[in-house]
Design a protein around this nucleic acid. Structure first.
Length: 238
DNA sequence: CCAGACGTTGTT
DNA sequence: GTCTGG
DNA sequence: CCAGACGTTGTT
DNA sequence: GTCTGG
């Protein structure tokens, strides 16, 4: 997954109910519909905290706690699942700071250069998808402010995504969430088994608006293909 | 020993 | 923080 | 990935 | 053309 995902407010509400999420009024703005969540955007993640599942604000693009600044965030929005357990930038988070990221779809671009168009992958029934993620806290040396940031794990594309791209995010079944979020025990085998291409059954591909390429666009029409230009209207000769 | 890296995606 | 390269 | 910038001086 | 920001 390269660039974008979506999350609408009705789904967030569903999620919140499902996981008994703690909704902080201070972060209410995060719960408005989002149709175009770009790297470095603010989002939120599900993590286990004292055996409770909490949705907490975090920015997309992991900033390691030892980083002197946030400048590396844009290059760490994805993490290869094949190597997260050994890569210096990820293994600490992989061992003890796993999270899940609720979305209702993700975008990829297809087609030849110059005529590329985005598609959205989502559940056939539009239910929430959970991305496997890693997070880390970072303390600003200037202000002392602590913020969370996260990466999304990638794996090989499944049959649905492969025509468009060779990688896709790791999707977690609801059944898998407890295993993924539980960082108290080491269980590499079980984790490895989760970091595989999603079964293609419930995932579908839908054309989306080319406007998702602009980070400023964020509205429901992004989920639909752009309207056809129609017959050329030459105003002068009409 | 110190300095410097530490990451992913894409390529008509 | 921790590993790699020089 | 795409969209958008692409510069300098001087600084509470 | 090529880099940066989102």
């Amino acid at each position: 997954m390269c660039g974008r995902f979506t999350l609408t407010v009705q789904h967030v509400t569903d999620v919140a109910a499902a996981v008994e999420a703690l909704v902080d009024p201070l972060h209410a703005e995060l719960y408005r519909p989002r149709y175009n969540i770009a790297p470095t955007s603010k989002h939120f993640i599900l993590r286990l905290e004292e055996s409770r599942r909490l949705l907490v604000p975090a920015s997309w693009g992991l900033v390691n706690r030892w980083a002197p600044d946030r400048s590396g965030a844009a290059r760490q929005f994805n993490a290869r699942s094949e190597t997260v357990s050994v890569k210096p930038a990820y293994r600490g988070a992989f061992r003890s700071r796993r999270c899940a990221v609720p979305i209702d779809g993700f975008y990829e671009w297809r087609g030849p250069k110059g005529a590329r168009e985005p598609v959205r992958f989502h559940a056939r029934d539009e239910r929430v998808l959970w991305l496997a993620g890693l997070y880390e806290d970072w303390t600003s040396p200037k202000t002392g402010e602590v913020t969370l940031s996260f990466s999304v794990l990638t794996t090989d594309a499944n049959e649905v995504v492969r025509p468009v791209h060779d990688r896709m995010p790791v999707l977690l079944d609801l059944d898998a969430l407890p295993t993924w979020l539980d960082v108290s025990a080491r269980n590499d085998e079980a984790l490895r088994a989760l970091m595989v291409p999603a079964s293609p059954g419930h995932l579908v591909m839908t054309p989306a608006s080319r406007r998702v390429g602009s980070v400023r666009a964020d509205d429901p029409a992004l989920l639909e293909p752009d309207p056809e230009p129609g017959p050329r209207q030459l105003g002068l000769f009409r």
